[in-house]
Design a binder for these strands. Structure first.
Length: 428
RNA sequence: GGAGAGGUGGCAGAGUGGUUGAAUGCGGCGGUCUCGAAAACCGUUCUGCGGGUAUCCCCCGUAGCCAGGGUUCGAAUCCCUGCCUCUCCGCCA
């Protein structure tokens, strides 16, 4: 959410900065609604002042025993109240309209973000490692996984529905090893670990920006709860309605959770394999930083996510998303893409964003810095995958496969798999 | 799931219809005292919104005592609903 007042004062600048990103957002209608809202506030409040004055006088008249005067005043108060009630209805509508608009305008891109229309205009910032060269025809994970007993697509469908997967035997163990490796690694590098609910309420989803605009992407229960699409939702909302101390910033958090995405519109993309599924595991990174340091904090977060792939020894590259490809709440986003032989290219495995004060304003997360400024200000929130576990598992299988269909376990994961160094097919 | 109690400012804790943003204490901040510190004493200490001034400095108004409704000229104070916390019982990983 943008600051309504800031938006009013910088209307044209924001309009220009958002460009196509604004979609059909009606700037002029917003100004009209906001004018109306302000007018009504003035009216209502002057009536309320009148009402308060009258009520006070009635109390004094009653005490003085002047019943007739008191009754007359009561009648006037009733009239004023009727006026207030009617104005109040209009005001509530105006405020709802303004808020609705503010909740649906995307964040303003940072000045350093390349301007572009879609993913073709994203800019690569750097690469690490070289894609493996196989002396044989490498298999895709959707062939390799089932052959190893590591991934079972059919049974995922049987147990839930399409786009759910079951991991078996070494697939399940490798998945668990990845989660623990990621958590331990981030933990040792300054991220505080949390374990959070997998369901969240509407206020929480509103705080991070999934609601109200993207309700269709979420699974929900008939009790008004939603399955979280990412731990970012919970980690960020941990501090909803709180005031942090500048001295304790930046806060660095991480958590492992399953993530659930309905993504109705995604049908047809990545239909094979477990690249795009309704439920996947992810280790998430979240930071709370001051406005002055948040862009540096973003660079650090990207490096922390990349570090996982470097430890795993898998080739990857990092790109900065252009203005047209960024998510709703982001002011700047880096995607980390991992080399997948089955794609013959790089595939997104992490997305790290600085949401600046966009989520903080929605979730009311502030910080104070005595001596620097009075009162409190909104913090900047950042989030990034560190990493998407399912896709990392796919990357390990595909990049570490051998001619005989076995898969070498990366060195750093072996302690997490009881020393096992190779995954082989076995009779079940 | 059943029964009971309760949700007030950073914390503790008053306040059961009429200048209540809300007593008091603690904590925090500033000051006096001191070589310095402690103690003591004095002062100060919430936020959103609208307007003025004009820009984070102050003034005016308004709203806020879990949330949302209701009663009333007027509610922290009365009524209803929801949420949450605590105690006891049941159930359960």
């Amino acid at each position: 959410m943008l600051d309504g007042r800031y938006l009013r004062d910088n209307l044209e600048a924001v309009r220009a900065a958002l460009g196509a990103r604004a979609g059909g957002w009606e700037f002029d209608r917003f100004v009209q609604l906001d004018d109306e809202r302000r007018r009504l506030i003035s009216e209502v409040e002057s009536r309320q002042a009148e009402r308060n004055e009258t009520a006070k006088r009635i109390g004094e008249l009653m005490k003085a025993g002047q019943r007739d005067e008191a009754e007359a005043a009561k009648e006037r108060a009733r009239v004023i109240n009727d006026e207030i009630a009617s104005l109040d209805g209009s005001l509530a509508q105006a405020e709802a309209d303004v808020r609705e608009m503010l909740l649906t305008i995307p964040n303003v891109p940072d000045a350093s973000v390349p301007v572009g229309a879609d993913e073709n205009d994203n800019v690569e910032t750097h690469r690490w490692g070289t894609p493996p060269e196989f002396g044989f025809e490498p298999q895709a994970h959707w062939d390799l996984g089932p052959a190893l007993g590591a991934i079972d697509f059919e049974r995922g469908v049987k147990l839930a529905k399409s786009r759910f997967v079951v991991l078996g035997r070494d697939g399940a163990r490798l998945n668990r090893a990845l989660i623990n490796f990621m958590l331990d690694t981030h933990g040792s590098r300054g991220y505080r670990e949390w374990s959070v609910p997998t369901m969240a309420n509407a206020d929480t989803l509103l705080g991070t920006g999934q609601l109200p605009k993207f309700a269709d992407d979420l699974f929900h229960t008939d009790e008004g709860l939603y399955l979280i699409p990412t731990a970012e939702v919970q980690l960020t909302n941990l501090h909803r309605d709180e005031v942090l101390e500048a001295a304790e910033l930046p806060l660095r958090y991480c958590a492992y959770t399953p993530c659930f995405r309905e993504e109705a519109g995604a049908a047809g993309r990545d239909t094979r394999g477990m690249i795009r599924v309704h439920q996947f595991d992810k280790v998430e990174l979240v930071k709370f930083a001051t406005p002055e340091t948040s862009m540096d904090a973003l660079d650090g977060m990207v490096a922390d996510a990349e570090f996982i792939l470097q430890q795993l020894g898998i080739a990857h590259r990092t790109i900065v998303l252009c203005t047209g490809d960024m998510g709703f709440g982001a002011a700047k986003t880096y995607d980390i893409e991992v080399w997948l032989p089955s794609y013959g290219g790089y595939k997104e495995i992490s997305s790290c964003s600085n949401c600046t004060d966009f989520q903080a304003r929605r979730a009311n997360i502030k910080y104070r810095s005595p001596g620097e400024f009075k009162g409190s200000r909104f913090v900047h929130t950042l989030n990034g995958s560190g990493l998407a576990v399912g896709r990392t598992l796919v990357a390990v299988l595909e990049n570490y496969q051998q001619a005989d269909g076995s898969v070498v376990v990366p060195e750093v994961l072996r302690p997490y798999m009881g020393g096992q160094d190779v995954i082989r097919a076995e009779a079940r």
